[in-house]
Design a protein around this nucleic acid. Structure first.
Lengths: 346, 346
DNA sequence: GTGAAAGCGCTAACAC
DNA sequence: GTGTTAGCGCTTTCAC
């Protein structure tokens, strides 16, 4: 332990030198017991270990980072931490990170472009080993900055067709198809959709496309016009649903691009004096934890968010260590889950 | 930019030396441009700035950290990232961190003691400047480890009576009192509660105490027995509510220790064939974002989570820079919000 | 006003 | 096997 002139212990972090002094060895020996224990004779090794224990010594990450040029830290960009969708994703990432012995640094971008850009710089200075970019569309400015800094990065729950960036998500088009196909098979002929705006989210267009394809397969092309767009949140979805209901009052089913949208739709439908699922069926998307707690329990297209989180971290790790990934665009399976917010049309 | 023997640019991060070379000055001058610009003559300063721009140079955080012994990073322990309660808290912390120009590193402890303890070591090695400890009870082992590492830390949305640790939260006892007092004033005479277990959450006991005090003030002592305990999640609250309803079938009101518990209670009540709020009123706690999206919209005791997040970070910053805080245990105001899950008893 | 040089805590040659 | 030493990239005296 460092001491001041009077010999009193002062509150300073012990360094490798303190350990070496206490154990009566050189600093390299201390370094060796930490990095290559078998090369040190047992007697000394034990003394060093004891000193480490007594001093509560932990190596300084800065010094190590300077040498290894690695921080064992991954930066994660989250568009909106208050969206329940990301909770599961984060949990998966964290568990994978623990496994790989690295830490995660999160940034809530609030979907703000400048904020995101400035976070990239921050990550750079902090020397993160790589970045996970969750869910939003990959803006060219982001891409440009990431590559300029030579950041390894992967997209989680989104992907890019413009650039060859490793990504992990699901097949949105066929997932949406599954939901709408189910509705049509169960007899619904008047189906509407609350969609993401196409530009902002990469999943906006494909989910709409899946909707339209299912419509077409069932001879329901006319319904393709029954679409309203909402930004990311419940409130927007609620308003969009009111517009949709006004535009197409005979709807018996609504496909929502997210569970939060489904909740907005359900509220709007009930506020309009009709009931879910008796009058109108609603199917959401994502299967957030809340889907099962809502009343009515949400029918939805489940995304394996936890697994997406896991795979995204593993993929980034692969990219960092190998310099490349085996599978560029990875698609995980979705699953249609029917609960209480939808039912067959008699 | 670093170059190899053949003179080709190689993908390596530029260092201060590269900038100095390009600008034709010494590295100290470059350093000065970044840390004390006014001490450098304009002509050189401009050249340096230009080189920095051209090289996309960013100082290495490791090297800086080694010198300043500061990472400008704060570690945050979150018990359960999937609990919606924390989303608002995190958002507040993040916004405050941006303001103070520091980064946040989150750890989802999953309420696992060993995991938390190991994260503390990880934070130590990463040289975080301080730690925010969110919401759980402060276990002696945590306290011991934190102080042993000389970590400045503050408690967010929890507090400790055993130790003098800076904290930011609300007055749970009087917040709970407010909810139950309201219920009693509105004519309810059979009131029950779904409570946290007392040990795990610091807010378990005081919320129950507030419940009992309100009961007493209205001559309803008998209701104090109408309590069931649930762990942290919806499912547990659902089961606890079923037990409660069985034990006290005449209840006309239930006070839940969290909004998620309130949802569990509402589902249980409806599954039992009664309606909320017509037969039974339910008041939750927290005012998570979902409270307003639920059907029925939740009456609840609102916590200023965002502000708690903000203040917690500011307080930790104060502790780090000043070595002490002005106000040890800070209580922010709560607010009773009546929506659609409760109504006066006719 | 500016450059040379020491040193932050650590690892990895390199001697012995 | 173990100690000595040269950096990693940066800031900061200290001369000039």
């Amino acid at each position: 332990m460092s001491q001041d002139a009077a010999g009193k212990e002062i509150a300073m972090k012990p360094t490798i030198r303190d350990v070496a002094n206490m154990a009566g060895v050189s600093i390299s020996t201390v370094s060796r017991v930490m990095n290559a224990p078998q090369t040190v004779v047992e007697s000394k090794r034990l003394r060093v270990l004891e000193a480490i224990e007594k001093l509560k010594y932990q190596p300084n990450g800065f010094a190590r980072g300077l040498i290894y040029k690695k921080s064992n830290t991954i930066g994660v960009m989250i568009p909106d931490i208050e969206s329940m969708y990301y909770a599961g994703l984060i949990r998966g990432m964290q568990d994978a990170a623990v496994q790989l012995n690295c830490s995660l640094m999160f940034c809530n971008t609030d979907r703000d472009k400048d904020r995101l850009l400035s976070y990239i710089e921050n990550f750079y200075e902090k020397q993160v080993d790589g970045i996970i970019f969750a869910s939003d569309a990959l803006h060219p400015a982001y891409y440009e900055k990431m590559t300029r800094f030579h950041f390894p990065f992967v997209l989680a729950s989104t992907h890019s067709l413009d650039y060859d960036i490793p990504s992990v998500d699901i097949d949105d088009e066929s997932a949406a198809y599954a939901a709408v196909d189910y509705l049509a098979r169960e007899g619904h002929r008047q189906i509407g959709m609350i969609s993401f705006p196409f530009g902002a989210m990469i999943s906006g267009q494909p989910r709409y496309d899946g909707f339209v394809r299912a419509l077409r397969d069932h001879g329901l092309e006319a319904c393709a016009a029954h679409v309203e767009f909402a930004e990311h949140r419940y409130e927007h979805a609620y308003q969009a649903s009111r517009r949709l209901l006004e535009k197409a009052p005979n709807l018996t089913a609504v496909f929502a691009a997210s569970d939060e949208f489904a909740m907005g739709a359900i509220t709007a439908i009930q506020d309009g004096g009709r009931s879910v699922p008796d009058d109108v069926s609603v199917i959401g998307f994502d299967n957030i934890r809340m889907a099962d707690m809502y009343i009515p329990k949400l029918s939805t297209v489940a995304q394996p968010v936890y697994e997406i989180g896991i795979r995204a971290i593993q993929k980034l790790h692969e990219l960092i260590t190998d310099g490349s990934v085996k599978q560029l665009r990875e698609k995980l399976p979705h699953k249609l889950i029917i609960r209480d917010s939808s039912k067959p049309l008699r």
